[in-house]
């Protein structure tokens, strides 16, 4: 130390560490709550490919470019990709998970409001990435 007291700096660092600990604990807790998928959630198989989305319901019905779900029911998306990586995103419901070739990623949500929402691709996937969208219809 160059001759002067460094106490203020260490106190400052301690405050920073406390704040970071709080942020970390809070984030950990929310992530834990959010990741807990209800057992009765209906599985929707999502496949991304250049440059459209395909959805398959549990009963085997397939939809391309649009997805119809019921309000108030939990859904679990099983997401994968066919050609290159994509990212499945319903921004209005904070649902986001990468679609990776050869992997099955899951994310769940329970829509609470009827309406139309945009599904988009968030991972760069080539020529028409900007236009790789689908529509989510939440019905009563």
């Amino acid at each position: 130390m160059s001759g002067h007291s460094n106490w203020p700096e260490w106190i400052y660092v301690a405050v920073v560490i406390c704040l970071l600990t709080y942020v970390g604990a809070e984030a950990w807790n929310v992530e834990r709550i959010v990741e807990h998928t209800p057992a009765e959630a209906e599985v929707i198989k999502v496949t991304g490919q250049q440059w459209f989305w395909t959805f398959e319901h549990e009963d085997g019905t397939k939809e391309v470019g649009e997805l119809h779900l019921k309000k108030g029911k939990p859904y679990k998306f099983e997401i994968t990709a066919k050609d290159v990586n994509h990212s499945f995103n319903i921004h209005d419901y904070v649902v986001l998970q990468d679609a990776i070739v050869g992997r099955l990623n899951t994310v769940w949500f329970a829509p609470d409001k009827a309406g139309e929402y945009t599904i988009q691709c968030r991972e760069y996937c080539g020529l028409l990435h900007y236009n790789m969208r689908a529509t989510l219809y939440v019905e009563e």
Binding site: V16, E31, S87, N105
Partner: peptide, 25 residues
Amino acid sequence: ATGMSFTEKTVFMVGTLAAAPASAM
């Protein structure tokens, strides 16, 4: 977002937060 487990995410979150005090210094 690539499908990491809760544990992996936690580890890397802690690792990331750990860099902040030094920058704050």
